[in-house]
Design a protein around this nucleic acid. Structure first.
Lengths: 115, 115
DNA sequence: TTTATATATCATCATATAATGATATGATGA
DNA sequence: TCATCATATCATTATATGATGATATATAAA
């Protein structure tokens, strides 16, 4: 099992290598999936899937602390998942990407089949 | 911003609440997306997307330590993403779920559009 | 029955990150 | 201007988790 033993199936190994995306793509994918890999962010996204909401109402709807919500919204903003719009004292958030709803629904499908 | 102030748009808050999946579903979703939220697992999955591989060859193809690969394979096995088949001293892994390839490709699509 | 090989597991360490309370910023109205 | 409200940011803490080396298990060959 060492580090420099001989490969068992050289052809398969080459095929595996050829199928790999670039390192940049792999890191991008990691970040993309990470967006959905947290219950707080999932809740926020499902909430925004229904309706545009200000931070205050997200806190109310999901029973979350304001700082928690703001932190996650910043993350979602920086990854281009949500967009914001200021109106007086309030900042309204909504989904910024048409795919997001699709990604969420696909996930739901998966977990429902795996039961 | 306190904890028990009044809601700004009660109707929107109710809609947001109604759109939420069950707590169980949310936790399941978190786990599902977590599978793809790590570069090592992403690499393994793209490799297995092409061809069935034994642990040894996964290590070779991806330049990863054996213990690292085994750990992640265990995780992928336990979450029903990959299956294994023993043949002599070798254990061959392959994708256990038709969706997985779809999920990977959808992710690739997303990051390619977001550029 | 030794020895070698392939894989799995374990314990440890380092890192990443989510939650939280406190504080800062910025807008509105008195 | 001052007070209030909504949001953002910061620092801290706790937890989760990935990588790693060492070891255990299991199969096969010598």
């Amino acid at each position: 099992m060492g580090d420099d033993g001989k490969i068992i199936d050289a052809e398969a190994v080459q095929a595996a290598k050829d199928g790999l995306p670039s390192e940049y793509s792999i890191v991008s994918l990691e970040l993309f999936y990470k967006v959905f890999a947290d219950t707080t962010r999932i809740k926020i996204l499902f909430a925004l899937k229904e309706v545009e909401l200000c931070v205050y109402d997200i806190c109310a709807a999901l029973s979350l602390k304001q700082s928690t919500v703001s932190q996650q919204l910043r993350f979602l903003r920086q990854t281009g998942i949500v967009k914001s719009r200021q109106e007086g004292k309030n900042v309204y958030y909504s989904l910024d990407d048409d795919h997001i709803t699709g990604v969420l629904l696909m996930g739901l499908e998966h977990i429902n089949e795996k039961r």
